[in-house]
């Protein structure tokens, strides 16, 4: 027969929520061209994609 259950003290759960608010700063202003360049790459990628699709 197992011994009777009895409650034992337990440390309550406690989350480190502040860690979630440690975030990297936005570097966009330091990167070359910033957003406009990304847009260009997106369009050429799309066109290249179309050519590739045509060849297949």
């Amino acid at each position: 027969l197992p011994p009777a259950m009895e409650p034992i003290p337990a440390k309550p759960l406690f989350y480190d929520l502040a860690l979630n608010f440690v975030e990297f700063p936005d570097l966009t202003e330091k990167l070359e061209g910033g957003q406009p360049k990304q847009k260009g790459a997106g369009i050429s990628g799309f066109v290249k994609g179309l050519w590739g699709w045509g060849k297949k």
């Binding site: 309550p12 759960l13 406690f14 989350y15 929520l17 979630n20």
Partner: peptide, 14 residues
Amino acid sequence: YEDERHTNLSAVMV
């Protein structure tokens, strides 16, 4: 993080 925050508040209350 509402749930986690309530958990932390519960720990404080203990």
